[in-house]
Design a binder for these strands. Structure first.
Lengths: 210, 210
DNA sequence: ATGCGAAAGTTAACACTGTCAACATCGAGA
DNA sequence: TCTCGATGTTGACAGTGTTAACTTTCGCAT
């Protein structure tokens, strides 16, 4: 049970709710989730959260938003730590997969249909764009090497970007839902699969350095 | 409301429940779904379905299973209609994406965490394997062309298979959740992205015929 | 044909959920 | 100091999945 309340007003109830709710999602997933449970754990009445969130969905959006921000940090670190283009692309992808593996329930929520599609949550959409930024930068660099004359906004460019986004998300999903049953270490398989998708035999050593 | 009941026993209540539940999932998704609603629509008491399903989850598993069977048919048709390997691979992928686009809510359920991970539903797992069979056949053919000497069970082979599976699933997800905002026709973009992933410039015309 | 046990369907109830309206309390600024 | 908006509470409502106990019907052995 939560600690006794010291004052009538909490101080930062909104932050506390997001924090506790995130823990609960991580522990039990959406199935065992309940607004009343978090309220109790924070030590506040069942309906207090309606002063900070219009409804459950809005709280979920806030949780997902923080998830994308955390993912952004991991991606940026991986991006900054490598200068070899291929290796950097793989490592950003692996950071993505590691995040999904370590926070499966949170990852599921981040792509849940009830909030993912909703244009209403602009902050969430921004955070998501931010999280895919480094993957997009790598895609653009690879595309420029492959098709130096292609226009940046071409269909070719767009499909290359989507390709990488879809691949990591697909790998993360299959992994989380337990649909990849491999005899080898999962991490090794993931790395192999990512590099498999990045075969650029025509890249020289110097071209790979960025 | 459902039509009046003629007999005490329904005859094929299990089938009727799956059918009506599938329609409801298609129309409203998991959010608006309710066991009581389907029971009412079938014209039976709220708890009648517990004689055929242990719980809601088991009903979901049955719905998902039928979804994978329908998807299998579409995939097989696409597979049988093409002899060019690249084209066949693309068309099987497009059949997959079309199915997801036409049945977004059903598709989401088919990959829902509550049932996807559960080893308990062996029929569901079989149906899923069946649905990915044709994609796997294409992957194997492509791998044999690329690495004729690789062993069928190698890590290389496995990663190639997973690669294609992850890609179509990732594309379907991003598409369904509205995360692909493109100025071009979605279908065209999807086809372009799929073929982008299949670049085998070293394949001769005759090699592509299977 | 008959009777009986299992299969299939019903009724009533339970604990739990998200949400709302009305009320209580606190804090900051006039 | 007064006041009003922001914040938190109480009580309630409709709806949910699920269980236990009961009733009806069907299929089968005698």
């Amino acid at each position: 049970m939560g600690r006794a309340k010291l004052t009538y007003h909490h101080g930062d109830l909104k932050g506390a709710l997001i924090s506790v709710a995130t823990e609960m999602i991580a522990a039990e997933g959406q199935a065992g989730f309940s607004l009343r449970k978090i309220a109790q754990q924070v030590g506040v009445s069942q309906t207090a959260l309606y002063r900070h969130f219009a409804n459950k969905e809005e709280l979920f959006a806030a949780i997902a938003e923080q998830g994308f921000l955390r993912l952004s940090e991991k991606s940026q670190q991986a991006f900054d730590n490598h200068s070899d283009l291929i290796e950097r692309t793989i490592e950003v992808g692996m950071a993505y997969l590691d995040f999904a593996a370590e926070n499966p329930n949170l990852y599921r929520l981040m792509f849940d249909s009830s909030i993912a599609d909703n244009q209403r949550y602009t902050a969430l959409a921004d955070a998501r764009r931010q999280a895919f930024k480094y993957s997009a930068l790598n895609s653009a660099a690879l595309r420029r090497l492959r098709d130096p004359d292609a226009e940046p906004d071409s269909l070719q460019a767009e499909s290359t970007k989507i390709l990488s986004q879809a691949l990591v998300h697909g790998l993360a999903s299959l992994m989380i839902e337990g649909m990849i049953h491999s005899r080898v270490e999962r991490k090794e398989l993931m790395r192999k699969t990512l590099s498999e998708s990045l075969r650029f035999p025509w890249l020289t050593e110097s071209e790979r350095q960025v």
